[in-house]
């Protein structure tokens, strides 16, 4: 007998946003692609630069979570809400305005991550293409949350999008996208065989071309779970940093034994997620390093969120850190 189970509404919000809008938070394609303005990346090519919209949506996730923490998820009002853009409308605010003003700075920063990543890869000699406002989210959360039936259909759309670019290699900025494209898609979309690479792997292959980053201060690496365990990419990050002449200190738990940033439970258990994020920050700070590097959008957001007020450390994405070498 089939049982229809009602789960916390946030799960269905995320699900239907992905299915309907191609993005967990129903962002517009033009918003997702705004970072690429002026770069004139071609829509077709051998190497597809794939953001999946994940860095771009970071500032909005926090808003969604903040809103959820203040609204009873079981209430009728909540279940009426769909997507991030009308959440605050229902509470009497104008969402567009709130986001535009409060988060302009964050928005800018995370958009810049995509920009910097493309810049680095181009400078390393890769010819990138980018589908612009047609880019779709990978659907990793559909997999994560159990919506496998939806993913089966959705993945086909993503594969169509990929195929229109003619690319043979896909560079994923997010390890979550890389995981789902590399390990799950082949089971769901027969014949899907594009080569899936992470940003880290692409950089690693050309690391000799990276400009040095002048610093004597050691950094600590927070390995993302997906990257270190499912994708088995950990030494590569060390190699890259060695190539740019940056000393590394290792956390007590690292590589395959890395501690999760707590990010995955942000939607359903935000307080717990925050606690885990700060505990991981503590672990990383025990090394004495002042810069914490990671290579995953959700780790980046969770660790930043987990920093204590007045914390002296900075949390940066590997992309941002490597870009220092080019900006200098």
């Amino acid at each position: 007998m089939a049982v229809e189970t009602k789960l916390p509404p946030v799960l269905d919000i995320i699900r239907s946003n992905i299915v309907k809008y191609g993005n967990p938070l129903a962002m517009k394609g033009s918003e997702v692609a705004s970072w690429a303005k002026g770069l004139n990346l071609p829509k077709r090519g051998d190497i597809l630069f794939y953001t999946g919209g994940e860095y771009q949506l970071l500032p909005f996730i926090d808003s969604l979570v903040k809103t959820m923490t203040h609204i009873d998820q079981g209430s009728k009002g909540f279940s009426l809400m769909m997507g991030v853009r009308n959440i605050l409308d229902k509470a009497g605010f104008n969402a567009e305005k709130v986001y535009a003003s409060v988060l302009a700075k964050d928005r800018e920063r995370y958009n810049r991550v995509c920009n910097k990543a493309a810049h680095i890869l181009q400078r390393l000699g890769y010819d990138l293409c980018y589908p612009g406002d047609e880019e779709l989210y990978s659907g990793a959360l559909l997999y994560e949350l159990g919506f496998w039936e939806d993913l089966k259909e959705y993945a086909q759309k993503v594969v169509d999008m990929i195929e229109r670019t003619g690319a043979k290699t896909i560079v994923c900025l997010s390890p979550h996208a890389a995981e789902v494209l590399k390990l799950i898609y082949p089971q769901m979309v027969p014949g899907f065989s594009a080569e899936i690479k992470t940003f880290v792997e692409m950089v690693w292959e050309q690391r000799d071309k990276l400009p040095a980053i002048p610093t004597s201060k050691p950094v600590v690496i927070h390995d993302s779970c997906r990257l270190a365990r499912e994708l088995e990419v950990d030494e590569e990050i060390r190699d890259i940093l060695q190539a740019v002449g940056v000393p590394i200190v290792e956390a007590y738990r690292n590589k395959k034994w890395t501690t999760c940033c707590g990010g995955p439970s942000k939607l359903l258990f935000p307080e717990l997620s925050h606690t885990m994020g700060s505990r991981r920050v503590d672990e990383l700070e025990e090394t004495g390093a002042e810069i914490i590097l990671t290579s995953c959008p959700y780790c980046l957001a969770s660790l930043e969120g987990g920093q204590a007020k007045g914390d002296k450390t900075t949390v940066e994405d590997l992309i941002e850190f490597l870009y220092r070498g080019f900006a200098a």
Binding site: V3, E4, K6, L7, G74
Partner: peptide, 11 residues
């Protein structure tokens, strides 16, 4: 059959 777990999750 219907099963509402929203309360369980909240608690």
């Amino acid at each position: 059959m219907k099963l509402d777990l929203t309360k369980d999750f909240a608690e």
